[in-house]
Design a protein around this nucleic acid. Structure first.
Lengths: 228, 228
DNA sequence: TTACTTTGTGTCATAATTACGCAAAGTAGA
DNA sequence: TCTACTTTGCGTAATTATGACACAAAGTAA
């Protein structure tokens, strides 16, 4: 890790990741308990330094893989943080990203860099090392505003999910209560989602296997459609 | 400048600036004609490398000052660009920013790094060096969407300005025509702006000096108010 | 003073949002 | 399989926001 500091001319470049997950009707972030100084034994966002030949998304994926065991997840660049004192080891500029995962579909594993990796509901996040409180806050803000106009957030659910689950997810992320029936209409009217088999009995006849599966997971069959 | 490349472990860090100005009812960008390779004699966005002790905004201001002569202008971080081949000199990651200026209030001067500095209306921008076409496009997009929900864009006008000027600015940036009367109502209803002296005769009586000034610059007295 | 341009205000039709009612479909226990 | 209960799908009415346009008051320049 320290080889990133051999250079004295340039600041070091890092990425930090705000990984959101949705579990038990709670929005959570994935935090890492650091094994080494600085901020040893503190909770921080997963992050790491850029190798010369990597591009930012590759770094994100590498860190995600090695530090948390997650792969192939939704990733988006957030903001670059460059406060001179943000990292006690020296001048480090971090290009923060945020990620969305469905925790049930992935096993989270602490890499050998960390004591522990754990999901924290966003309203019980402890104080974080570095400037990660700030990064986390900004990511949460971004998620809240983005979900209003873009169908991000489906990434947090199973491949198929019920209207009710989607509804709860929105209420949870936005922290408000939304009328179930108005929400339903809005989602179905929107261009983002194509709903098929909205009739329960139709679903029962046309997709009996899916219907049976639904009996456990309460799933309807919505498909995500990103407009051009 | 080449000292930024002494490091081989870390990518170099740079900023690029998309400087928007509004002049003659046209939205323009400030472009620089390069004196040196790469892209010698091509038009590019102003940009430059980060010194170790600087933070990003400082770099932006320094570059703005030395390359274009502009100072104290509105600046906002846009996005970080990191395509491996974006700079032929080596691995350079650029944190792009965009800026808003009122060209009439500033004199633009080419620094000694450039052959020329010039405003280009956004619809006649030539092909740019590096990946600056992409950066420029993204900045324009950001400006268009931001202006819809946040009172950015006042930075492009004089300290005081008429409703008509503001109206034209919006039509110009968004590239659509907006009903003058509906626009007016929306602006006045919004929390962003507090209008005083909306009656012309009232203005004449209460602010005769301002009124006289208006006769030249067609100014009403609107004040910008950023909500908390 | 007159003819013309710019600015301020209102009105009406249409569309979007919100707040509910209610019945059909599904579920679980006896 | 009957019953009581929960979940889901659809509708309707009140409120609010938006878009299109008319018109008169104020300003301007000859």
């Amino acid at each position: 890790m320290s080889k990133a500091f051999h250079s004295y001319k340039n600041p070091s470049l890092a990425v930090d990741l705000v990984v959101f997950g949705y579990h038990d009707r709670k929005l959570s972030v994935l935090l890492l308990n650091r094994k080494e100084e600085p901020f040893k034994n503190s909770w921080t966002l997963p992050g790491g330094f850029l190798q010369i030949e990597e591009c930012l998304l590759q770094v994100c994926n590498r860190i995600m893989k090695t530090k948390t065991g997650l792969e192939n997840i939704y990733l988006e660049q957030l903001y670059s943080f460059d406060e001179p004192g943000r990292d006690p080891r020296g001048r480090v500029i971090s290009v923060a990203h945020y990620a969305l995962v469905n925790p049930q579909r992935f096993e989270v594993v602490a890499g050998n860099m960390a004591n522990d990796v754990q999901w924290f509901p966003v309203d019980t996040v402890p104080q974080l090392g570095f400037d990660h409180d700030q990064i986390f806050g900004q990511a949460l803000q971004r998620l809240k505003s983005k979900i209003l106009y873009y169908p991000v957030g489906f990434e947090l659910l199973d491949e198929t999910f019920t209207m009710t689950e989607l509804h709860e997810l929105y209420e949870c992320i936005l922290g408000i209560s939304i009328d179930r029936r108005n929400f339903r209409r809005k989602i179905l009217d929107s261009e983002y989602i194509i709903a098929t088999g909205t009739k329960r009995e139709g679903l029962k006849n046309r997709h009996p296997d899916l219907y049976r599966f639904n009996k456990q997971l309460k799933q309807n069959n919505f498909q995500l459609h990103i407009p051009s």
